[in-house]
Nucleic acid binder design. Sequence first.
DNA 1: ATAACATTCAAACGTTCGTTTGATACCTGG
DNA 2: CCAGGTATCAAACGAACGTTTGAATGTTAT
Lengths: 229, 229
Amino acid sequence: MNPALRALKPPHETRTRILDAAEALFMQHGFEGTSMRLLTAQAGVNLAAVNYHFGSKDALIEAVFRRRLDPMNAERIAELDRLEKSAGAMAPAPADVIRAFLRASLLMIEDAKSGGRNFIRLLGRAYTEPSKPVRLLIGQLYAPAMERYKAAFERVLPELPRDELVWRLHFMFGTLAYTLAATDTVHLIAGCKPEDRYDAKLLEERLTAFLEAGLLAPLRGVCAVRKAA
Amino acid sequence: MNPALRALKPPHETRTRILDAAEALFMQHGFEGTSMRLLTAQAGVNLAAVNYHFGSKDALIEAVFRRRLDPMNAERIAELDRLEKSAGAMAPAPADVIRAFLRASLLMIEDAKSGGRNFIRLLGRAYTEPSKPVRLLIGQLYAPAMERYKAAFERVLPELPRDELVWRLHFMFGTLAYTLAATDTVHLIAGCKPEDRYDAKLLEERLTAFLEAGLLAPLRGVCAVRKAA
DNA sequence: ATAACATTCAAACGTTCGTTTGATACCTGG
DNA sequence: CCAGGTATCAAACGAACGTTTGAATGTTAT
């Protein structure tokens, strides 16, 4: 390579170019639907580069998720730490815990330029990925943050039975995952203009209001049903 | 084929065997991840049978969805018709509209034997499918029921701004889609025993409570944010 | 019985897949 | 200047893919 260009070249440029292209293409065509030839062409690197730098296509998929998910979940936990510290002995408000959890995802949605938005959509889809290894990886990367937030919600919602909380958290993750993944499906339901881009602040308010109400919902007939069963 | 066996053979047995196998395998391995060779082997039919009976793999995918989704959405609409008829001039309760929408999905979840459960999970995943044709198909098959329910919710929630309602319905579909698709992920969050199978009645109560509260949630800071923007 | 039709079957079609190879260019430390 | 490690490249590997073919088989109507 031209020495002048080489001097300007960052140390891991090829790796980064591959990861960026993979992120975009995995979103558009899925994992199986994205061929190494298309991927490397889009990244502007040689076909063999993926196997050289990552070992295999599967290892590349894992790297794509790790690059974004590790810092994201770390920040999620840090956000909760901050919240609990500032609340002192008192339990934080449920809405604030929800917000702390949402924030990392919503920040990334705003960053459309560097691909964060795209990754969030990819992540939302990965939850329901057919490939078992992928789902296991996601679950494993999420596990630490999950544990912390589950504990936090148990503290701020002490009156809610444990198994009921688990289900409501499940619903909450579902709402988030789908909302982030299906950014184009909204228009189907809504018939609203595509130029109404995602406004992260507005979305945060809407999600928080919806989720807080759902998490705090009265128990209704659940107990009755359980007794009857 | 043996005439005695042939006499016992239903008219569309091959088609049905293919659809059943496709339903199961598409769930396990995804569309691209399921090869025609594996599919036809599992169905116990010849490799060429899919192309003979359906024309192509894509057409088979469409047939898999149509077989279940058409009657399912028809029943969803019928359920709403019944509800509105019985309510007469009064608007039905929000929780009842939610229940009417959930019922078709939850009934199918209970029917694990004939593959309905499996199809529901497949459907939940199809919402976020990479393939654009598949998503368009799903959206198109859902459209009539969507319109009816959107109108129904506008009637029972007259005080909720239209765009706010659209988002909350989006959240609702997300919760449902994810809950149905990720039946195995619950255990990751919960650490609960896998033998706690889905109890449709309990799930209906839990979902209805969560979704009703979310749909009826107070508007909070949303209006303030919108004014500021 | 026989012609016409519907279905099944084994085999092969051309294409594309993820991965590997061995040669070539590059930068770096001695 | 040159040996040694790192990275890139064109080319090829065998395997698996969706689809097509044409013969064989079974069913139906005349």
